[in-house]
């Protein structure tokens, strides 16, 4: 009887372990399949020059030209723009929620931020298409409203909830004694926030920023309709249309086949590369944060 129970327990434990390993297998499968398909066109017979791919500024599948440099530039610039606008606004909102706002107001603000995080990205795209693009069309020196500026604005809005909630958590984690010591030295509340609390919450805010970068660079559907997606050309200004790595994949994947499809996977590999940098940085920051706490 005892023996039987033990075997039973062992079987169940193995089942649990298998379920836990599904995550590991999935990550490996995603990497292997995407990389295999994406690196295929650069090897074997009739290879496409990797340098042409990574430095080209023209994407014309019908002519067999696949250059994604202008998309890399667009993705990086849009993400950078979103961080420049989104992080300060998000951080200040977090400061408001953690340090200044009365309890009742926080109780309204926090669900509001959660709701902002829960809005499907397609609806951010609808907002961009219905509000931002027509507005930009009016003020832009160019004829169209689809532009890098529209992309940057939508991405800034989309990273806000990530920045706000993580920064707020790390601001709240700063020990009360830090603030009291600062007040004791005669500093005002605002001085304490900028000179003591924010520096003390630095690593958390940095993690939030990196997570925001990851969200912005991987976002697809919200920016699909407002980017313009031209087939060639580096972005000249914030008014020019851009094609991002993500939108390139989503635009053509439904009908692509053969080499064109492989090139879309290659675009995915480049995107993956950026995501790995982001994930690595995040992991490094979390480790460092944990060590500091010890």
């Amino acid at each position: 009887m005892r023996q039987k129970v033990r075997i039973h327990e062992k079987i169940v434990e193995t089942l649990f372990l298998v379920c836990a390993l599904v995550g590991v297998i999935s990550v490996l499968a995603i990497i292997v399949f995407v990389f295999y398909k994406g690196l295929h066109p650069f090897f074997g017979e009739d290879p496409y020059s990797f340098t042409d791919f990574i430095t080209g500024v023209r994407w014309a599948p019908s002519e067999g030209t696949y250059g994604i440099f202008y998309m890399i530039v667009a993705s990086v610039l849009s993400t950078a723009g979103a961080i420049v606008i989104g992080v300060p606004i998000g951080l200040m909102t977090a400061v408001f929620m953690a340090e200044l706002a009365p309890e009742g107001m926080v109780r309204i603000l926090r669900p509001a931020v959660e709701l902002l995080a829960g809005i499907p990205s397609v609806l951010y795209g609808a907002f961009g298409l219905g509000v931002l693009v027509p507005f930009i069309r009016k003020v832009s020196p160019l004829v169209q409203g689809q532009s890098m500026l529209a992309v940057i604005l939508v991405l800034s809005i989309m990273i806000l909830p990530t920045i706000i909630s993580l920064s707020e958590t790390s601001l709240r984690a700063v020990p009360q004694s830090y603030r009291e010591a600062s007040y004791g030295l005669g500093a005002s509340k605002i001085q304490t926030v900028f000179k003591v609390t924010i520096p003390a919450a630095k690593s958390g805010i940095l993690s939030a920023t990196v997570l925001g970068i990851g969200r912005a660079i991987g976002e697809t559907m919200a920016v699909m309709m407002i980017a313009g997606n031209p087939t060639a050309g580096l972005p000249q200004s914030i008014w020019s249309m851009v094609r991002l790595l993500t939108t390139n994949i989503a635009m053509e994947m439904s009908y692509a086949s053969g080499r064109q499809q492989e090139m879309l996977f290659a675009t995915g590999v480049v995107l993956f590369f950026f995501i790995m940098i982001v994930n690595g940085t995040l992991l490094f920051l979390t480790r460092k944060g944990e060590e500091e706490q010890k």
């Binding site: 991987g218 989503a250 994930n279």
Partner: peptide, 13 residues
């Protein structure tokens, strides 16, 4: 890492 992968990559896979 799974949490950090954008959904378009999931779509590709």
């Amino acid at each position: 890492n799974l949490a950090g992968i954008p959904s378009i990559i999931y779509g590709l896979f």
